[in-house]
Each structure stands twice: as C-alpha cells, then as structure tokens.
Amino acid sequence: MAQIVKRAYKYRKRAYKYRFYPTSEQASQLARTFGCVRLVYNKALEERTRAYNLEGKRVSYAESSAMLTEWKRSGEFAFLCEVSSVPLQQALRHLQAGFANFFAKRAKYPTFKSRKKSRASAEYTRSAFRWREGELTLAKMDAPLAIVWSRPLPEGAEPSTVTVSRDAAGRWFVSILVEENVSPLPPTARNVGVDAGITALATLSTGEKIVNPRHERRDRRKLAKAQRALSRKEKGSANRAKARLKVARAHARITDRRRDHLHKVTTRLVRENQVIAVEDLAVRNMLRNQSLARAVSDASWREMRSMLEYKAAWYGRTLVVVDRWFPSSKLCPACGTVQETMPLNVRLWQCACGTAHDRDVNAARNVLAAGLAES
C-alpha cells in the first residue's frame, strides 16, 4: 500500500532562521536564560516523574506553572526572576507536549536536558519581544539583536514566536515564525519517481542521476584530525574546550553543506513535478549495518523525504510514499517478472524476456508507476 501525502494550505506558518552576533551583555543574558530554561524543564520533569511513580498522579501544566511560581519565591531559585518568564513557561509547555505524546504512544518518555549535549535554546512569544521597523528586541534587553538578514521576511509579516539558539560551534541563531499566504505553483503534467541511493543521491524515473556529494567523506580527514587533537587534551582544560570547538565547527560545516544541497534538490523536484513518488525506506534498520551506516547517514534520506513532504504541502504538489516491501529493483516492467534475488553489487541486469535494466533507473520507474496507480 502507498501513503499519499497531499495537503493544501491557504496560510502556512514558516520559520525564517538568521544568524546574529550578540553583544557581551546579550550573550551573558541569553546564556543565563538557556540555563534557567534547562533547569525549569528538568526540575518539572523530576517532580512529574516523582508524582507519577509514588502517587500515580499526572501533574498538569497549570500545576507545573504553580510550582515555577513557588520556586521563584524560594531563596534557592530566586535567580529565575533575573530572566524573562516567557521562555520558562514555554519550557513547561514543551514538557507538557512531551508527556501528551508519551501517553498517546507517539513518543518515548521525556528525558532530562543535558548542559553539554542538549540544544541551548529559548522560545519567546509575542509578549516577550518587540518587533519594530525590522529590529528585534528581546525581553530584559535594551538593544535590538544584530541580525544578519540573509533574506527578507515576507512583506507585512508579523512574528508570532522567536526562538534564540546557540549551536555546538558557538554560533548564535534566531528563528522567526511568521504566517504566510500560500501561493501554489501552477499545475504541471510532469511526474517523477525517486530512488534514493548512495552512489547517486537520487535516481529519477527520467533516467537522470543526481550525484551524492558525500560531504562527510570529503571532510573526513579534517574532522578526524580535529577529533584526535581533542582526545589528547586534558579534560576540563581550556585547550580541550578550544579543541572541542574545532570539532563542532567541522561537523557544522558538513551539516550546513549537506542541508543546502538537499534543499536545492528537493525544491527543484517539487517545482518541476506534480506527483512525486518515493520509497518508504527503513533508514533506522539500515543504520545497523556497519558497512553502510556511515554512507547512509551522510546521504540523509530521511531529511530529504521530510523536505519533500512539507514543500509538496506548501506548493500544492502530491507526494506518494510507496510501501517499503514493494520489489521496485527486482520487478521487470516489460513482462512483470519479479527476480528472486538481487544482491546490492548488481547494478545492471537483464530479464528473461530480454529487457536490460539499470537497477536504480528501473526502481525509480517502478516506484513512479506504483505511486500513480495509488494516487
């Protein structure tokens, strides 16, 4: 069975992410806010877990909010009053959403946030920031953020939520959520089937093969050198902190280049085709294969599919996800024969009916045929 992902929105919420450079005072204030957000989230999770394990009681968001008020009044956590209350309340809302997903069996039990491993971020709603003449000023700050406007916001857009974050490489980002009027792309008669791969990132039913840049492999030597240097540094030292930053920057470079390439590929596919058919790959299972795990991770098939899903919804296209057990590579479309076995090293094969096939192109064409049959 195929899953048809087709949505049409007149208005959509879209986040625009920009890099900014805070002053030393702003950086200090935001660092304190990140720490308070993490503390409130962890303490609320601890209280909810204790109540559930000892009393069998589910703590609501309102009760967690009342706890936060009591913590602020206590001497031990009085410093929570030094930062904006909105990011702290948003942390409680995110925790509430995590528990709702857990009890609905959509996610695992919420986990504690780590100072070193968790993403440092804080979310501000409309009451906690000022947007005036293209300048953004957060609560508890006197000056606007020095944002690098790499692209303009939609004309007349009013931010509803602002999320400030700092990545492992020490870069600061602000994500501005706005509501946009959707402009669907003009209908087209072209359809395409996509077969994801490693040698070629995507093989299309038209016969075109999109090259996989393999960003991680290209920077592997530089990354390995930085990781070796980090392993030699004494734990807790300033030199280790500097070495850790170099490793994080190497990872960030790989991630940014990979995401940029995926955006270009998926945007092109959505613009040029009305129906896009893809295969439902079991990426998590593939990552257990030690021989393929690194290459599969570098290809980021799951991220590519995610981009296709929301871009198809934005621009009025149809994405069809074909069942993972569909024998796309082994099926001969000329006679309908399905080959019994086909090892991964077989890239070209010939059916008993005499038809020669390129394994990836044949798979993309079969995926398209199955997708069109369902849609």
Rank of each mutant, 00 (worst) to 15 (best):
A299C: 00
G316W: 10
D260W: 08
R244M: 06
S329I: 03
A250L: 13
R249C: 04
M307R: 10
H251I: 02
E279Y: 06
L262S: 10
H263W: 04
R302H: 02
D323H: 04
Y315L: 11
Y315C: 03
V278L: 10
S297I: 00
V270I: 10
R284P: 01
L308F: 01
M304Q: 14
R284K: 09
K264I: 13
R324G: 06
L287D: 15
L308A: 10
P327H: 08
R302M: 01
K246Q: 15
W301D: 06
N273M: 08
W301N: 03
V275P: 03
R271L: 01
W301L: 06
W325R: 07
V278C: 03
I276A: 09
R317E: 05
Q290I: 04
A243I: 01
V320R: 00
W314Q: 13
D280P: 01
T266D: 14
M286F: 12
L319T: 05
I254L: 11
S291T: 14
V278K: 02
R249P: 02
A243M: 05
T267V: 07
L331M: 09
L331E: 14
Y310N: 07
R302L: 04
A277C: 13
V247T: 14
E309K: 08
A299M: 06
E309C: 05
V321I: 09
D323K: 05
Y310M: 06
R257N: 13
R244S: 08
T267A: 14
R249N: 11
R253F: 10
D260C: 04
D323F: 08
E279P: 03
W301Q: 04
V321K: 09
D256L: 02
P327M: 12
A252V: 02
A282H: 09
W301V: 01
A312H: 07
L269G: 00
R258C: 00
S300M: 13
A252C: 09
L287A: 02
I254Q: 10
D260H: 04
M304Y: 09
A277T: 08
N273D: 12
A248E: 14
R284I: 06
T318V: 06
R324P: 00
V278Y: 08
P327S: 10
A299D: 11
L245K: 12
